[in-house]
Amino acid sequence: MKRADILRAQYMRAWQNDEPAAIGDLFHPDAAASGLVPGLPLGAEEFRRLIAAIQDLVEPPRITIEETVEQGDWLAGFACMHTRRIDRHQDLNVGGMVIARFDGPAIVEAYNSFDFITFFEELGLLPDNTAAPCLTGRRRA
């Protein structure tokens, strides 16, 4: 089984089927994923908590792995979360990247990036186009 297929299957279990144990099956016990929360590597338990926090904000998401590149023990992929806001049932689609090193079927290290700005904008928790004023370098008074 390709690493991308392993990741897709475990994401489906964890996110869509609400099986938190899937994260423990995906991550080696000593593995940690960096990049989602600055300065806080996420092991399986922290990743389960992150999923639960996101699922409190949206309907059960479907995660698709759109494009992947595999080389040796490494997998790089672009993922997209397809879901809806709980409060308005409005579609929400947000992308992110995962780069992971596998040992057999388990991730032993991972680096992630997720578009939290768009995610929180679409939830109404940040103003629309938040990134544009940030790029000006001007601070709010």
Results as ranks from 00 to 15, higher is better:
R3Y: 07
R3T: 01
R3K: 15
R3L: 08
D5T: 11
I6R: 08
I6W: 05
L7F: 12
Q10C: 08
M12D: 12
A14V: 05
A14Q: 05
Q16D: 09
N17C: 03
D18K: 09
D18M: 02
A21D: 12
I23L: 14
I23W: 08
I23V: 15
I23S: 03
D25N: 09
D25V: 05
D30W: 12
L36P: 00
P38T: 13
P38W: 01
G39S: 04
L40G: 00
L40A: 09
E45V: 15
E45P: 10
E45G: 13
R49C: 08
I51G: 05
A52G: 07
I54M: 12
Q55I: 01
D56G: 09
P61R: 08
R62V: 15
I63Y: 02
I63E: 01
I63G: 03
T64W: 00
V69I: 12
V69N: 03
E70H: 07
E70C: 02
Q71Y: 06
G72C: 04
G72S: 01
D73I: 02
D73S: 07
D73F: 01
W74E: 07
L75G: 04
G77M: 01
G77S: 08
F78Q: 09
A79W: 11
C80G: 00
M81T: 07
H82D: 07
T83A: 10
R84T: 13
R84S: 09
R85G: 12
R85C: 13
D87A: 10
R88F: 06
D91C: 05
D91S: 10
L92D: 10
N93M: 13
V94T: 14
G96K: 09
M97N: 01
M97G: 01
I99D: 00
A100E: 06
F102I: 03
F102C: 03
I107Y: 06
I107A: 06
V108N: 04
A110Y: 00
A110F: 04
A110C: 13
N112K: 12
S113H: 10
D115C: 04
D115H: 04
I117A: 02
I117W: 05
F119E: 04
F119G: 03
F120M: 15
E121N: 02
E121A: 01
G124E: 01
L125Y: 14
P127Q: 11
N129G: 02
A131Y: 10
P133H: 04
C134I: 14
L135G: 00
L135A: 09
G137W: 05
R138G: 00
R138S: 00
R140S: 11
